[in-house]
């Protein structure tokens, strides 16, 4: 079970209600800027609020900002769960 405790997870792997710190963002430049402007910066705290049905978007909370993003984009963000 050691690998389960590895520090880096993907944002898409969090379970609803779980909190984490953002450890890396692997997006291209355009998306990187947009994500940063919405609060996806390294070290920021993020909480997964819920997932949409039928593999729908993730609803996450960063500080005072709520954002929805698709699984594909959530796979670009590494987090370390708290």
């Amino acid at each position: 079970m050691l690998h389960m405790k590895s520090k880096n997870h993907l944002l898409s792997e969090l379970i609803p209600g779980q909190e984490a710190l953002i450890s890396a963002v692997h997006a291209d430049e355009a998306l990187h800027h947009r994500l940063a402007a919405l609060g996806f910066r390294i070290g920021n705290r993020i909480q997964l609020m819920r997932r949409g049905r039928w593999a729908g978007p993730l609803h996450v909370r960063l500080g005072a900002t709520d954002v929805m993003l698709r699984q594909t984009e959530a796979d670009l963000i590494s987090v370390s769960p708290q």
């Binding site: 947009r34 709520d66 954002v67 993003l69 698709r70």
Partner: peptide
């Protein structure tokens, strides 16, 4: 297209 979907959810 493969447009990223990242959208604000205002209160």
């Amino acid at each position: 297209s493969s447009e990223p979907f990242v959208v604000e959810l205002p209160p």
